[in-house]
Amino acid sequence: SELMNSSKLIRMLEEDGWRLVRVTGSAHHFKHPKKPGLVTVPHPKKDLPIGTVKSIQKSAGL
């Protein structure tokens, strides 16, 4: 199965306009000026399962 580095996923979010608002432990929480909701990324993780990545991307509207 495909894995993604959390840094790469965070870069994709930031390029889309998401900004880090809070860190709780290894959970990084992002908000967007125009899009609704809060997106949480486990970080640092070298090997996020593709299912997790897809669900984060979906929440972020990517």
Rank of each mutant, 00 (worst) to 15 (best):
I56M: 01
E15Y: 08
T24A: 11
S55D: 15
R22H: 13
G37T: 05
A27V: 08
H43S: 03
H43F: 03
L3R: 13
L62E: 02
T40G: 06
R11T: 13
T24N: 12
G25M: 12
L9W: 03
P33I: 07
I10P: 00
G25D: 14
G25S: 13
V23I: 14
G37C: 06
K31W: 08
I56H: 01
K54M: 07
P36G: 08
V23T: 07
I10M: 05
M12R: 07
H28W: 09
L3K: 14
K34I: 12
F30H: 01
M4R: 12
H43K: 02
I56C: 02
S7D: 13
S6P: 03
R11S: 13
M4I: 07
S59Y: 07
E2V: 08
W18A: 00
L9A: 04
L38K: 08
E14S: 07
V53F: 04
S26D: 13
A60V: 03
K31C: 10
P42S: 05
P44N: 04
P42E: 06
G61F: 05
W18Q: 00
Q57R: 09
K46I: 11
G51L: 09
H43N: 03
K8L: 12
E15K: 09
V41W: 01
L9K: 01
L48E: 02
W18C: 00
G17R: 03
M12W: 07
K45V: 15
M12T: 08
S7H: 15
P49H: 06
P42N: 05
V23F: 06
K8S: 13
K34W: 13
I10F: 03
M4V: 08
K35R: 05
L20A: 08
H43V: 02
R11P: 02
T40R: 13
P49A: 11
V53E: 02
I10L: 05
S1P: 12
H28D: 01
P44G: 05
L62I: 10
I10D: 01
K8N: 15
S6M: 02
H28C: 05
A60G: 04
P36N: 07
E14F: 07
T52F: 14
V53D: 02
L20F: 04
D16E: 05
L13C: 02
A27W: 09
S6I: 03
V23Q: 11
E15M: 10
S55Q: 14
G37K: 06
G25C: 07
P33Q: 09
H29R: 10
R11I: 12
P42D: 06
K46Q: 14
K58Y: 08
E14N: 09
L3Q: 14
R22S: 12
G61Q: 08
I10W: 02
R11C: 11
K45L: 07
P42K: 04
F30I: 00
K45I: 11
I10S: 02
I56G: 01
W18V: 00
L38C: 09
D47V: 14
H29M: 14
V21C: 09
K35I: 03
E2G: 12
S59E: 12
T24F: 08
P42C: 04
S26H: 10
Q57V: 15
V23E: 09
K31A: 11
P42Y: 04
S6Q: 02
L20P: 06
L48H: 01
V21N: 06
W18H: 01
H29V: 12
